[in-house]
Amino acid sequence: MGRVVIDARAAARPELGGVERWARELTARLPALNPERYVVAQPPPALAHRAGHAWEQFVLPAQAAAARAEAILCPANLAPLASRRTVVVLHDVAPLREPAWYSSLYVRWQRAVLPRIARHAARIVTPSAFSRNEVVELLGVPESRVDVVPGGVDPRFTPHADAAAARAALGLTSKPYVLTVASRTARKNLGVLDLAARRLAERGVDLVAAGGDRPQFRAEDDSAGVRALGHVDDALLPGLYAGAAAFVLPSLYEGFGLTALEALAAGVPVVAADRGALPEVCGDAALLVDPLDAEAVAGALERVLDDPEPWRAAGPPRAAPLTWAATAAAVDATMSRVLA
């Protein structure tokens, strides 16, 4: 049986976005699924970010060679440029589509490496058909070389999660709240929520945002009406979702939209942008709106708050088939084809 080394650099990061969640889940689940096949290579935490590029390009291939691995699985957009036996998960190619959302240094790096990574990869995995189409268009990859494998949601995200503990820990006990979970970056488009925040305040409802900054992204100006919670511990996230009166994600671009899926699993009414992969992920279980129309976003939130039960009922069945176990099994199947 061929051996595969998993690049766990993103799994070592302290923050937890969609890319990091994928890396952590695959790093844990694939060796459990097939322990004879998978070996995890993880750098020290100090090399999890920019300082770890050299580790990924040079140390990781050396470790793979020492382990006599036949392939390297890279779950977080980047991969060793010299390797021809990589399977890489490209979550999106947003820096190529909208470079203004990122720092100039990050855009130059992505423009330099993404085409080479895509060209050299034995196989590419994307989390949505939307991202597959972006990869095909912007990187010139034949569609036949791309497998679509959706992300998953942990069973902890449920309507029955401990909302009271999350509310107490985060100081959310005085009012109902509408939640967004997103980093404070331009592509998340949180500024469009100002009008909604004012409207919700008139109803005695707070609008709160969980998530921090990312150094490679251009930060968005603070949204005056949105209460920033900053980084929220992963243990509190299920209860934070479950306790929300509604969830909103007005992103201009999502390769998947994991936080919207988590909100659906938690039985929370979801308002999401009608672009990127969000319509594909949410289907008719969420109310989809133009993220550039502040009036439409505010009105949609008022609509789901006025009649929440149909939206609460629609979410869990939509999310139920999308599990991390299914994601790991599909990625393992891709690796089997590559090794064959």
Rank of each mutant, 00 (worst) to 15 (best):
G2F: 09
R3N: 05
I6H: 00
L16F: 04
G17P: 01
V19K: 03
L47K: 04
H49K: 03
F58M: 04
V59N: 03
A67C: 12
P75E: 09
P75W: 01
A76F: 00
S83G: 01
P95S: 11
A100Q: 11
Y102E: 12
P115H: 08
P115D: 05
R119E: 14
S128E: 10
E137Q: 10
L138Y: 04
V141E: 06
V148P: 07
V149A: 09
V153Y: 00
V153G: 00
T158V: 01
L172G: 10
T173M: 10
T180E: 03
A182C: 13
T185G: 08
L193A: 15
L193W: 14
D194L: 14
D194M: 14
R199I: 00
R203W: 03
G212F: 15
Q216I: 14
E220I: 13
R227W: 02
V232D: 02
P238L: 01
A242T: 02
L249Q: 14
L252P: 13
L258N: 09
L261D: 01
L261S: 03
E262S: 02
A272L: 09
A272I: 13
E280G: 12
G283D: 00
A286P: 10
L287C: 14
L288W: 02
D290R: 12
E295S: 11
A298I: 00
R318C: 07
A320D: 07
A326E: 06
T334N: 05
